[in-house]
């Protein structure tokens, strides 16, 4: 950092984040995915459901990438590029929203159980244990069977399945934190539980939440794919990156791009979130200051 802070603009977390090359790279990928999803109707050359007569070879097999169809076509002669763009909408909504809700529930349960302990804390943690012991997929199937499948139901189902691990991790972290001496020091100053919770415990949980959140992106996107495969996810013909993989996985030998392209997209998105998450965690930690 250069001296002479008076003339310098304030060194905000955002500024420090932008100085990191890897984080910037991650941000660009995320922006691309968001851009593609939002402007899909204008960018996509065709409608995602449209089956092209010239989209299949004479033998009826899909076309490889290149030519008229940028990413090639799928088994029904649909344009993969268009499907990927529209699929980004579903996958991003699920990756961000479902994961966000899961993290929200997990944090709420974990923090309250870890901070207040006692009967309520015990009951909450036994509930998470129960949820953990229950096969996640079975639960998802049950939930999906009760409600008519739609994107929002899928988001809800995934959130309800995925909050459990987050709650466990955050509970452990919170109990460890509330035993720390500076929390006891706060108590001797007369700080109430609200202040301790919001000013001293939650800020320390930020790294855990960020790491857990970014790791969760890929698992949620894949869980959606699994649900789609079982016919209880996002309903065809609406594309999502997950269900594109699952629709086509049996043709991996003859048409590998149908699996490879959406697979690469999921990996790239998960990686991008991980990079940004890691950088965000460091940037928000004052003890890491000056190590950019």
């Amino acid at each position: 950092m250069s001296p002479g802070g008076a003339t310098q603009r304030p060194d905000t977390a955002w500024r420090r984040l932008l100085r990191r090359r890897l984080a910037l790279f991650g941000l660009v990928i995320i922006m691309l995915a968001v851009f593609g999803a939002v402007f899909a109707p204008w960018i996509a050359p065709w409608a995602p459901q449209e089956q092209h007569f010239d989209g299949l070879t004479l033998e009826g097999s899909p076309l490889p990438p290149g030519g008229a169809f940028l990413f090639g076509t799928d088994l029904l002669g649909r344009d993969l590029f268009s499907r990927m763009l529209f699929g980004a909408r579903t996958s991003l909504v699920i990756g961000v929203l479902a994961n966000g809700i899961a993290l929200g529930i997990g944090t709420l349960v974990g923090v309250s159980a870890g901070f207040f302990r006692g009967r309520i804390g015990g009951a909450l943690m036994r509930l998470t244990d129960l949820m953990m012991a229950f096969p996640a997929l079975l639960l998802a199937i049950c939930l999906a069977a009760i409600f008519t499948p739609s994107l929002w139901i899928v988001v809800l189902v995934i959130a309800l399945v995925n909050w459990v691990q987050a709650a466990r991790v955050i509970y452990t972290e919170t109990t460890a934190l509330s035993e720390r001496e500076f929390i006891q020091a706060e108590r001797t100053l007369g700080a109430g539980p609200g202040r301790i919770l919001f000013r001293h415990i939650l800020p320390h949980l930020v790294p855990t939440v960020i790491v857990w959140g970014t790791l969760g992106i890929s698992t949620t996107v894949l869980l959606e794919a699994t649900l789609s495969f079982l016919g209880i996810g996002v309903q065809p013909p609406t594309p999502s990156w997950g269900n594109i993989i699952f629709e086509n996985q049996t043709y991996f030998q003859t048409a590998p791009w149908l699996v490879f392209i959406p697979g690469a997209a999921i990996v790239a998105l998960a990686l991008a979130f991980n990079l940004v998450g890691d950088a965000l965690r460091d940037v928000l930690d004052p003890t890491q200051r000056g190590r950019d």
Binding site: E181, F182, Q184, A185, T188, L189, G190, D285, P286, T287
Partner: peptide, 25 residues
């Protein structure tokens, strides 16, 4: 009353690094 009492009695711990929230100035 307990909060008011905190004004009269203060504590300084053994390990200052552990007793200060590392995320605050």
């Amino acid at each position: 009353g307990r909060r008011a009492l905190c004004r009269d009695v203060q504590m300084v711990f053994q390990d200052p690094m552990a007793a200060l929230d590392p995320r605050m100035r």
